[in-house]
């Protein structure tokens, strides 16, 4: 079939956008392993800059991983039961509560951080501990966990499953453990990957909440962009990509799977 002009135009737009998104990312990857960025690739490839990043920023990388895991645990403990309770009471009150906990998706992180700082900033033990940043991350990622689990629950006839478990003698907690959680697993998995991915990349809240002794990966990135030579900043970005891209791909795969189930 002969392609029309419109087809070629659409194709061109798509490719230009892809190039716009891809080219700088490749640049940063290359710059991170190039001996001297100004002289270009001819200066040779090196892992020197990545080694430098490791010396300077390994603590912030580990802090981010630790925060992401802690954030995941908290969102699981709070979010999964809450999603179940919301699914059980599909009334107006539940809609309002869901809307309210989703506020951190709509309100800029900066505003939320400002709110947290003003209420808890004077509690110095809390203010300077990693749990203060954790609160911010949980605030931002919790709605993703709740919605992801809720969508899967609402799509399956979980009430019938639960009622049949009840007629078979299962108590409320046993039903939750043996029927609800296993069947909500695709939603929990998609939610978990989203939580971890977003927590590792979170900057807006964290920048305001962090202390000089508690720098997360993205805070470290901002620091390197401002004060390090381009190669180090690029190498750090490369390390970040290496962590976040597989997570993102897993997240997209899991979300698509959960969505297929939810339909």
């Amino acid at each position: 079939m002969k392609r029309s002009l419109a087809w070629w135009l659409q194709c061109a737009v798509t490719l230009v956008i892809a190039a716009f998104l891809l080219v700088p990312a490749i640049q940063s990857i290359l710059a991170g392993v190039t001996a001297n960025y100004f002289r270009g690739l001819s200066s040779g490839l090196t892992l020197k800059w990545i080694g430098r990043v490791w010396e300077l920023y390994s603590a912030s990388i580990f802090l981010s991983l630790w925060l992401a895991i802690a954030c995941l645990v908290v969102t699981l403990v709070i979010g999964v039961p809450a999603a179940y309770a919301l699914a059980r009471n599909p009334g107006r009150l539940s809609r309002m509560l869901e809307e309210f906990i989703s506020l951190p998706l709509a309100i800029p992180g900066l505003a939320l951080a400002l709110a947290l700082l003003q209420l808890y900033g004077t509690l110095s033990g809390f203010r300077t501990s990693w749990t203060f940043i954790l609160v911010g991350h949980v605030l931002y990622t919790l709605p993703f966990m709740v919605r992801s689990v809720l969508a899967v629950l609402m799509a399956m006839d979980f009430r019938s499953l639960e009622e049949s478990a009840a007629t078979l003698g299962a108590s409320a907690f046993t039903r939750f453990r043996t029927v609800i959680v296993p069947n909500a697993m695709p939603g929990i998995l998609a939610g978990a990957l989203t939580v971890v991915t977003l927590s590792i990349g979170e900057f807006n809240l964290t920048w305001m909440l962090h202390t000089p002794y508690l720098k997360t990966l993205p805070v470290g990135l901002a620091d390197s962009y401002a004060s390090m030579r381009l190669e180090v900043a690029s190498a750090y970005t490369l390390v970040f990509f290496a962590m976040i891209v597989p997570l993102l791909m897993a997240m997209q795969w899991a979300s698509a799977r959960a969505q297929r189930i939810a339909q």
């Binding site: 798509t14 956008i17 892809a18 998104l21 891809l22 080219v23 700088p24 990312a25 640049q27 940063s28 710059a31 991915t197 977003l198 990349g201 979170e202 900057f203 807006n204 993205p218 990135l221 901002a222 962009y225 900043a233 690029s234 970005t237 970040f240 976040i244 891209v245 993102l248 791909m249 997240m251 997209q252």
Partner: peptide, 24 residues
């Protein structure tokens, strides 16, 4: 692959995107 390239930046933090623009 094209679809991945176009959707992966979804969770890139703003700071990284700022840096990518500087590289451009």
């Amino acid at each position: 692959l094209l679809l991945s390239v176009l959707t992966l930046p979804l969770a890139f933090p703003g700071v990284v995107i700022g840096f990518l623009i500087i590289l451009l």
